[in-house]
Nucleic acid binder design. Sequence first.
DNA 1: GTCTATATTCGGATAGAC
DNA 2: GTCTATCCGAATATAGAC
Lengths: 224, 224
Amino acid sequence: MASDQTKTAILTAAEALWADRSFGEVTMRDIVAAAGVNLAAVNYHFGSKDELLAELFVSRTTVLNRERFAELKAAELAGNGRPSVDAILHALVGPPLRWCLSPDQQRSAAARFMTRASVETVPPIKKIVDREFRHLQRFANALRQALPHRDEVDIYWGLHFALAMIRQTVTDSERLKKLSGGLCDLNNTDDIIERIVAVARDALEGDGAARTPVAIRASGTRKA
Amino acid sequence: MASDQTKTAILTAAEALWADRSFGEVTMRDIVAAAGVNLAAVNYHFGSKDELLAELFVSRTTVLNRERFAELKAAELAGNGRPSVDAILHALVGPPLRWCLSPDQQRSAAARFMTRASVETVPPIKKIVDREFRHLQRFANALRQALPHRDEVDIYWGLHFALAMIRQTVTDSERLKKLSGGLCDLNNTDDIIERIVAVARDALEGDGAARTPVAIRASGTRKA
DNA sequence: GTCTATATTCGGATAGAC
DNA sequence: GTCTATCCGAATATAGAC
């Protein structure tokens, strides 16, 4: 087997396993068994279990963040440098949710893996949070520019809540499905994204906006 | 040392350690070292590491759920059997947040421990999720009664989002503090509870964004 | 590059003294 | 009830054959 294939097989297997279980619960033996490679391969290609996690996490977040950032840039272009709150939130929420709910098993696993890994306290992740931190700052800055009249504190809380809903939906959709007796459709990606964006938008734009009648909201006051 | 003291010391130490690290990352040796007791004491008093986790989790959730439920009952009394959405949400959100932000270190650790443990995939937790499930169903039922005109699906999503915000705030407040440059005051318990309740209430009572047909919503808010 | 076999550490559990 | 000492399995990592 070629070197690249072995590396990729390990990364893919690790991602799938870490999507559903924590770092410590997944052993290297689990990973190599799923990847169909030998135990020694992990250390040969990555050095250690920790470094495998770090490389995998950087690899996936780089792609996801690029996708988010591209949408943010597109929104800035469309808004002549002032993207709407709605567009910013779509750039933040859309990519992870579309990944998670994708029929592509690997994409879905990648989204769950990242969400899980980002709250792990193990050393390899601690070293990488800075990357994610700067990534989120871009969104915070975009929101501040889009809502110059809003108290900054409210903006950060709104972003915090948006991230909360993304996380919960990516990692805990099973509970919602059971709680609702199967009523909540977790296959309708667009509907879910719109729900999260809508709630986050109301949180950001404030109480007044949140109680504005549908007719006014839907006609697009934010675009002005 | 008396039996009760040893048991309590183990429970307290385990709770504090599991508040910040996952099940697998905390070893029994870590726990007994923090508790100042001997390694064998855990097996003597609890049987195994798994059973220690299960007993601790049941112990803490029992108290928290009772507190939540008492507030829900009080709200029902005050509302003549029909508690307001606001009161229901306060019963759901208040207890875990007050625990988490309490100056009492143990209370705070208990809240973080429960939040962490509830998403663990290890066997001892899997066996207990049913308890939590029934607990949440009570709140779902209360919300359905308070909002009879609302689509049930929206109610479950609103509950889901409320739980998301609670979880994120309990486990990840540190990131919000850093992201906001210290602007967000994470000591003002009441303010935080009101923020979460307000957003959840808007999501539940809705300005309609979440239940508006896609066709209408898309005309004004979707990005290009 | 890949794999087998093994070294080494670590963690959970237990036996038995006190 | 408590503690020391130890067993046993598991997990990471590595050495060395192919």
